[in-house]
Design a protein around this nucleic acid. Sequence first.
RNA 1: GGCCCCAUCGUCUAGUCAGGUCUAGGACAUCAGGUUUUCAUCCUGAGAACAGGGGUUCGAAUCCCCUUGGGGUCACCA
Length: 476
Amino acid sequence: MRVAPSPTGDPHVGTAYVALFNRTHARQGGGQFLLRIDDTDRSRYQATSEDQIFHALEWLGLNWDEGPDKGGPHAPYRQSERLEHYQSLIERLMASGHSYRCFCTADRISKLREDQKANKQRLGYDGACREISAEDSERRARDGESHVIRLKVPNSGETVFKDRLRGEIRVSNAEIDDQVLIKTDGFPTYHLANVADDISFGITHVIRAEEWLISTPKHVLLYEALDEPLPTFVHVSLLRNADKSKISKRKNPVSLNWFRQEGYLPEALLNFLALMGWAPEDDNEVFDMETFEEQFRIEKLSTGAPIFDMTKLDWLNGMHIRKLPIDTLADRILSEGFGPEGESKERILEILPMMTERLTRLGEFTDKTSWFFQTPEPPTKEDLIPKKSDAETSLSALKAASEFFGSLASFQHDAIASGLDDLISQHGWKKPFLFMPLRFALTSRKDSPDLIEVIGALGAQKSVERIDRACEILRE
RNA sequence: GGCCCCAUCGUCUAGUCAGGUCUAGGACAUCAGGUUUUCAUCCUGAGAACAGGGGUUCGAAUCCCCUUGGGGUCACCA
């Protein structure tokens, strides 16, 4: 099994999606999972992209057995480094009459296409250069005439293959274009390089996106021309935008870098991706990769068109955050750069236990805990006065609290709780009349962890300072 | 437009291959309650779907056909 991304931009979520199924299936059967870089398009090539692919897949834990960075028995794993290989293959194809040189200019091809469009004919190459004799073809090539090499698709009959998910697929050969195999620049197209490499890598299962389904007959023809056995084809449904079109960066975040930067956990993203096309038998939708490997069955992949709706991802991320040991979570926050500037793991650990159930993405950590790491902007007067209360009540509540905390010998959760309850009953306040001004005084925000824990985290001195500061604001 | 693929709650899906146990199950989201000092977590509950039409059959979400809808693809991009 393999995954074969192109280094043409940011590492794509679709790559991870397909890699997940390939890798999992490989591991289940004791097979190898390879990473191949499909870099035959020089014009779209981006030098930094390859490294990013490595890093993104490593981040996800979708590690490969063989690849450009690891080497392996089938090296090299970059298509741009396998040119001789394609050359020898094309010689076989030429010799057996399965391919031919085409000297048509780009100009002629585009005119041809326009005519076909105007006459509402099927779009495709008309096979003009098929008729050129072998001698002429050789000579013109030797003379340096620019040309491509095309696949000679039979004029009649049909090409049939089986897709593991969709059953038998038959396409009339008349519908299949004489696909370019070698471009003018001497580089192979995807179709040739992909088949050539899958053969020489010994790929037994081609699990890839549905968009390739329609070009699979071309690949089948190539396998047949080369007299090689067909792999098992599995075309997985395309991830979709909300409007059902194929997922795109204009309508969705698709860069794996983005998910990492937002603070999605790799285990959550993988879990989510797995759920886009597969369902566990036991209704337990929160699972790790180990469980997934045990349960996944390729034939249970669904054929629908999953809309990439991150609502569930957010929920899953929260679930995975809460499943992580607190120490590990702290490490993640730190290593992924979500910790507040210059803060130690010890400091983060002081606040983290009360934050886990309030985090959906790691990226929220700094903002939601800023009151702990630094003195926040003071709350406004309005903040300090809850609905149905007034400035006077808030002020006396805060003063009472200030005195209470000032006299505190040590932090004991239950003692503080009962102390505050006493204050409330003494004065006949509603609970929010004390707690809300206190919350704003201490954190300057309306959502926070349990207040008594907040006080414990802050310590009596800081707490009193902030309460006194809030009293000043109320007096203004 | 040609060709190919697909079609169950708003979303992800189970059930479809081996038709009855499906008054269609679960999850997310939504809404309503509960817990509660806020937010969140957690718990309980509610609403919410077999695209339509024909067949086949005692019986169809499940099989067949048509229609409709959606998507993909028609590059010297992958």
